[in-house]
Design a binder for these strands. Sequence first.
DNA 1: TGTAGTTTGTGTCGGTTTTCACAAACTCTG
DNA 2: CAGAGTTTGTGAAAACCGACACAAACTACA
Lengths: 225, 225
Amino acid sequence: MKNTRNGGAPEGDKRRPDLSMDRASVATITRLSSYYRVLVESERDHVGTISSHVLADKSGVTSAQVRKDLSRFGNFGRRGLGYNVLQLRGQVEQILGLGRHWCVALIGAGNLGHALFAYKGFKKQGFHIEHVFDSDPAKTGELWGEVHIRPVSELHAAAAAHHIEIAILAVPAEAAQQVATMVVNAGIRAILNFTPGQLTVPAAVAVRHVDLSIAIESLSYTLTK
Amino acid sequence: MKNTRNGGAPEGDKRRPDLSMDRASVATITRLSSYYRVLVESERDHVGTISSHVLADKSGVTSAQVRKDLSRFGNFGRRGLGYNVLQLRGQVEQILGLGRHWCVALIGAGNLGHALFAYKGFKKQGFHIEHVFDSDPAKTGELWGEVHIRPVSELHAAAAAHHIEIAILAVPAEAAQQVATMVVNAGIRAILNFTPGQLTVPAAVAVRHVDLSIAIESLSYTLTK
DNA sequence: TGTAGTTTGTGTCGGTTTTCACAAACTCTG
DNA sequence: CAGAGTTTGTGAAAACCGACACAAACTACA
């Protein structure tokens, strides 16, 4: 139905209504997320139009970078004017796959797990942690808000029954690989990994690594000079 | 016969006993952190020597990458043999500025702040959260382990008195910039930022951004395809 | 000692990403 | 409506980064 190239509209319409093209790099997507945040903020402040320059300043990149990034997905701007905040927010939302409901499972109900569970940023963008698992029988059965903590052995069944799409790993380092394998076997294709160290998973599974130690070590290096 | 270790040789010696040279990229430092983790693990398992190939496999990169990264800081390996685990661990430790005591302040004693405070990975690598601040009077005065939560208004004085080197920001988004400015004014030159959005600070201040939402949005994009 | 095997360190190449710079497209004002 | 001013979109250049491949340096063992 949708031709990927130049639109079907004859009328000399050069616009590309395109939304999903060949894979963009993680760096590009990360920047899009920043733009998105700025756009939401601008929308809240009733800003109607925003230029690549302003968007760039607020996101900490160059204006050329903003234009290149956006033009990869379509011609969203108006020359001489800039970008319509409302429209662009919608476009970026669609590109990033936001604006819908994602079913997320949290595995590991320790300190970090609890903080992630309570973090409002996830839910605000459609990522709902509706299932929590832990291997510790002492934790199992606990009630967090409306969510019961269940043993990880139930992960497989729950994933199938509730269509869990993303797993957040917040377990001890020793258990990380084992749990990751369980997640994969449960049919979940995306992992947000908060454990240190490398996870080995099939190529079809997407992994994003958030490593707290590495972040602070990078600071330490900079300070040491 | 080049000198292998020591290196007391005067000039004409091509070796670089160098430890800190011109800025390496954040990507390089991030990989060094991964190597470091593998080295510590290997040391614990009484592995005496490790090749770039093995180190690469365990870190999820190519062996050429490992050698390039390490050779940027010195000639640590022995051809035909590999790297001495003990020595290399020490070298990387020194490059990253680990193996010493860092005085860290945590600002924001909410859920995330508490999880970060309890995270053992920091202390294990020398980053000691010895000061906790919060603006909420309800929190102020609470005792976490041996650390009293103090009002942020005391940050400036505490930073000077105790030589705080790194600040971890875990405050609500709205307060982020304001608190960051306070941190800078207190003379702290490194910030590990867990709040969403861009911080504006002088160029002399190092900032590393850990953005939970952006990480999960990148997954969402990938799943959306 | 000599020779076969191993592994590092690095020059070089290829690809990707970012920046630059400018024409085209549009707005705005008088 | 015309002309001045703005801003996008995008080729082209530059910078950056990782992979490759191989000589040099070392080990190991007969």
